[in-house]
Design a protein around this nucleic acid. Structure first.
Length: 560
RNA sequence: GCGCCUGUAGCUCAGUUGGAUAGAGCAUCGGAUUUCUAAUCCGGCGGUCGCGUGUUCGAAUCACGCCAGGCGCGCCA
């Protein structure tokens, strides 16, 4: 069954002959949804917008869906859903997409031999959330972690490994030792040539250097895995840059033969229209850069998974690069998939200056997560000292990690991100714990309900059984029900514009509306049939909250 | 110099692509609990949407010009 917005949109569109531009009402007093499309059409046809709106309304048949639509203001049409219709809609599951696509999502992409720091968090968390939403809506999603496991830094790493390695330090903290080796070699001018020689040997397939290289990657992947496990992030594939090495020469040859690339100042370049600087696909010394790797990666993905769309989640600084790569792909491949670069702002310090990678001032991701969990544990212990320690720690984990993720996801990704411990780890206001708390209160109701109410399903399941008839009479019941109804449209909007902050905003409103309902509408003390109706409302809220948080990569807990 | 992004309440930010009286959180001030978890709820205070000119029924949103900050601009990724 189509959703409320689908039904109304389609009806208006048919009557108007143009997009309905249906939105939630700016102010609830106008109704639930407003159609703005009439005014645009009236302007174009030079008609009176209010008269046109009346004509449109006369052609609408929305019996059983909403009250008679009204014209207001400059030509808005307002719709107010009927409680019976809302109740009926709530028994329907969230609609899957009508046209499933194959989507490759490329995010996180940390570098080997480096610690993961706060700079990696946005790509990882935003990408993971978008993957979850797309998958939930019924798309075929392939996630691929394009790690930086190849490049000039390996010359220095291998040299350092051979000459300066401290095995005790390596055993204790492999990545810290690798970072030390890199810095040590990099700092010494006289070692540069030797490092370059090690790199050349690696590229030529020298057995010893290959073994060291593999070992370094292995150690790095152990670190990545540990971090991803804490964050609950997983990838279908981890095909790093090195995977594409065998294809690079062919890519260059083909682009040259096709006349897409040409020699310039000794390098092989692709000049993209509108850009002065080219994409360099082969350096004058014969080496390949990441531009070539990215091109080979697109080709591999196209041939392997046949995606309709490839999405890259990286910071905004790579815009020019991806613009050039995408333009090249469109000239090169016969039926190129849609390519999207989803950007986000830089991470700034509290002084609004960028947190620089080289400075060593980076906040390590692992430390951030530790501190998040510690702060959460303090609060849990303070609120609920009687809970066993293991339980408190488990709660602290969900709350702490959830708070960090939510702080990131709830912000519009395009703006720069000012890093602040307090902001990242805040536990009140518009934060994940507020949403988790709403869920906990519902779970508590169901625990208390116990045998009194025979839950046909677990309270967090949506349930497909015939739900008790919903009696939506109290205003806060109605408000809550309508909010639940908007889950589906919110997910579609979130994916369409790649903006997880719309989902966080929606869930925050849901939690707020539930809290008002909770204050105003006793559940267990009510007489039937109100009690069953309210329990159903609770069950649906719990379902949407749990599912919604899951799509953000945030766990729920049963008590806190 | 050219290009991209940002500028909204004291602070941190939303604002569904041009819609109705610009909204939250934090901070601050006040109120609510014999009732299902008060990590809650209700209310007050707080605005020249960086500045200016334009486009039109209507602009935080679009165009142009300034101002301020950030990022990018051939062989690093």
């Amino acid at each position: 069954m189509p959703s409320a917005t689908d039904i109304i949109s389609a009806a208006v569109e048919r009557a108007l002959g143009a997009p309905a531009m249906l939105r939630p009402c700016a102010d609830p007093k106008f109704g639930d949804y407003q159609a703005n499309g009439v005014m645009a059409v009236a302007k174009q046809r030079k008609e009176n917008p209010r008269a046109l709106a009346e004509k449109v309304i006369a052609q609408l048949d929305l019996n059983g869906v909403c009250e008679k639509p009204t014209v207001a203001g400059a030509g808005f049409i307002n719709f107010k859903l009927l409680p019976e219709f809302i109740a009926q809609q709530l028994s329907e599951p969230v609609a899957k997409t009508a046209k499933p696509q194959t989507i490759v999502l490329d995010y996180s992409g940390p570098n080997v031999a480096k610690l993961m720091h706060v700079g990696h968090i946005r790509s990882t968390i935003i990408g993971d959330s978008l993957a979850r939403v797309a998958r939930f809506l019924g798309h075929r999603v392939i996630t691929d972690n394009h790690i930086g496991d190849w490049g000039t830094q390996f010359g220095m790493l291998i040299l350092g490994w051979k000459q300066f390695r401290n095995d005790t330090a390596l055993a204790a903290d492999p990545i810290a030792e690798l970072e030390r080796l890199y810095k040590h070699v990099n700092a010494q001018e006289n070692l540069r040539e030797a490092a370059k020689q090690e790199l050349v040997k690696l590229q030529q397939g020298d057995a010893e250097n290959l073994t060291i290289w593999k070992r370094i990657i292995e150690l790095s992947e152990q670190q990545f895995d540990a971090t991803y496990a804490r964050l609950g992030v997983r990838f279908d594939h981890t095909l790093g840059e090195s995977f594409y090495n065998p294809f690079l020469a062919d890519v260059v040859r083909e682009l040259q033969q096709r006349g897409i690339a040409r020699e310039s100042d000794g390098a092989i370049c692709v000049f993209v229209e509108g850009e002065e600087t080219p994409l360099i696909i082969q350096k004058s010394d014969g080496g390949f850069g990441y531009g070539t790797t990215d091109l080979a990666t697109v080709k591999y993905r196209v041939e392997t998974w046949h995606p309709d769309l490839i999405v890259y989640v990286t910071d905004a600084r790579q815009q020019l690069h991806f613009k050039q790569v995408f333009a090249t792909v469109r000239q090169w491949l016969p039926n190129p998939p849609a390519l999207e670069h989803i950007t986000f702002g830089s991470i700034l310090g509290e002084d609004r200056k960028p947190l620089k990678t080289r400075s060593g001032e980076n906040v390590k991701l692992a430390e951030l997560l530790n501190e998040a969990e510690e702060r959460a544990l303090t609060v849990v212990t303070q609120k609920n000292p009687e809970l066993p320690e293991a339980t408190r720690k488990q709660i602290a984990r969900a709350v702490g990690i959830g708070a960090v993720k939510y702080a990131d996801l709830s912000q519009n990704r395009t703006t720069d991100y000012i890093f602040s411990w307090d902001k990242m780890l805040a536990l009140d206001g518009n934060t994940a714990p507020y949403l988790q708390y709403a869920y906990v209160r519902i779970q508590s109701i169901f625990r208390k309900a116990g045998t009194e109410w025979e839950a046909p399903q677990r309270p967090d399941s949506r349930g497909t059984e015939a739900a008790p008839t919903l009696e939506l009479t109290h205003p806060s019941e109605l408000e809550l029900a309508k909010q639940i109804l908007r889950f589906s449209e919110t997910l579609n909007a979130t994916l369409a514009d790649y903006k997880p902050n719309w989902l966080t905003g929606y869930l925050y409103d849901l939690a707020g509306k539930f809290s008002v309902f909770y204050d105003n509408c006793p559940v267990l003390q009510s007489a039937e049939p109100v009690k069953s109706s309210r329990l159903t409302l609770c069950r649906l809220t719990a379902y949407v909250m749990k599912q919604g948080l899951n799509l953000l990569g945030i766990d729920v807990i049963e008590q806190m």
